[in-house]
Write a protein that binds this DNA or RNA. Sequence first.
DNA 1: GCATCATTCATCCTTTTCGGTGAATTATGT
DNA 2: ACATAATTCACCGAAAAGGATGAATGATGC
Lengths: 127, 127
Amino acid sequence: MRYEGPSADLDRTLMALADPIRRRILQRLAASEARVTDVAAEFSISLNSVSKHIRLLERARLIERNVSGRDHILRFRPEPLSEAQQWIAAQQSFWASRLQAIDDLLTAEDATSEIRPPKEKKRVRKA
Amino acid sequence: MRYEGPSADLDRTLMALADPIRRRILQRLAASEARVTDVAAEFSISLNSVSKHIRLLERARLIERNVSGRDHILRFRPEPLSEAQQWIAAQQSFWASRLQAIDDLLTAEDATSEIRPPKEKKRVRKA
DNA sequence: GCATCATTCATCCTTTTCGGTGAATTATGT
DNA sequence: ACATAATTCACCGAAAAGGATGAATGATGC
């Protein structure tokens, strides 16, 4: 029983991106649309295997399928990438803001200690 | 035998981010550093399980370990996130540039077809 | 010495992923 | 009718991931 977080979407997106072959398929489809058979041929894996990858990418809505006759035309959908990118950016900026907070704290300390700043007094070990 | 792409780093990063628990651990560590025991307690999973997650995150260099006495202080390292972000951005911009190219093409066509544009002549089916 | 933090190793379990095969099925193009 | 595109189903197998447990080890704090 795997814990399902609040955003199953992000889960599916990152799961789909985690596999190198799926990333290559995505890159291929970003260049131009293609049929399932084309993808299978270009990556020399069985049609059955491709179907599974396609299914995962489709579930993550990173691929759109357009049935045209007997061909299934696969198109790249970049939309879900935004959420992944935003999550990553959020962690980075969160971390950056923490650094800023620490910096502010130190600056404030420096400002307070205008009357003789006791440098090298951080991390005192048994003073 | 899994295919190892040209960037095993990106692989490890996205693999690490693919799991929701690891993402929560990362978020937690982005807020402030913590010990292994702390993480285990806060997410109520066994110390053994946490170790494995930490190992994966460490292998992806998303976490830095700093042994201080008997405590292992875990710190968030945002650096590897850049590569992941860049890959995603590349796909998005690649796709956007394709759209732009198509747009340019259509505009060029329109400009050329100033002398009577034969609309609906694409995808001719047995004329 | 003893408790604590953390790792590692050895198991075990279940589930998932990734790959394949083979056969059946549906729909379509020719 | 026949070939093609693609799916699905039923398998198989190997590997990895996630979780747990228990025991041992090492380093450290008290």
